[in-house]
Amino acid sequence: MTAAAVTSRPRALTYGNVWLSAVLLGVMALYPFVFGKSLNFGVSTLLLAGFAMSWNILGGWAGQLSLGHAALLGIGAYTVTLFAIPERAPAWLGLAGPVAPWWGALIGMALAALLALVWGRLTFGLRGSYFTLSSIAVALIIRLVVINEDFGGGAEGLFMPDLPKLFGLDLFDRHVEYGLAFTFVALTLLVTHLLRRSRLGYALQAVREDEDGARALGIDPTRMKLAAFVLSAVLTALGGSIYAIYLQAFEPHTLLELPLSVQIALMAIIGGRSSIQGPILGALLLAVFGEVFRNVFANANLLIYGVLILAVTLFAPDGLSGLFKRRGSKLGTNR
């Protein structure tokens, strides 16, 4: 990371740095050793952080506010489970038996990529809020199909069957699940870091700042957005398949609801769309806050999301991490 490279980038995306990511990963890696008795909270929080990171590739980098990511998460969860259930897997593709979850996850990611391609191709022609509206509609239609048709167990959902061991590890051991969730977050971080240095990353920034200008530079905005959508979808589906293993039983009513999509998006935005680690910070902050104040706000746990998102749009468009950074650069500690 040379100084010249940093200054040549637009302000918004310059201040992700590898050190902060390393510190974050270190903290997350230490968690199970310190809080070994609160692993359920740890796993679900890491998954949310990973979802927020994945969302941000589309929502932050490509500037396309999706409120339909629950559908992509659901594709990951459903695919890995359906392929692992002996009675269902062979019926699908004439397979001899159940498919191991790691292959199932890959299939889910491929399906999510496919969906993102079609979904994006249809709706990226729409500008601004229209894309957001369409993302809600698409996700809700998918939700209704899953609830009403029998291929995914309908409204009663699915149970995860016994799974083969991965390198001798029991996938239902919470420590192993924590490791999977950690790997997922680490992967989203890695992808985001790589994206930042890639042509795609530059092109996306250009499109986000000025779509017509980017087109004049020979960048095809729809293609770039599609690439971001596919990347975002693939990662979200991966997280979704880990989530399914963690839950072991799920229903469309817990996985495919609009509030989950909204929660993922808001975590990322509150944390900061334009910094690399912002979504993780947002997810960690909101999850810890929700847990600590669960008795105060249990009834209205999204209230804090509402207050924060309003505060962020009014006073800190770069999210909470933007606030720290601004102060940081003023103090000269950041560069």
Partner: peptide, 21 residues
């Protein structure tokens, strides 16, 4: 435009959760 979208989304959450409380 997205910021007004987000602001009203947040406002909606505040209203519905306020009613909940």
């Amino acid at each position: 435009e997205s910021s007004s979208l987000l602001a009203t989304l947040g406002l909606g959450l505040i209203l519905s959760n306020g009613l909940l409380l």
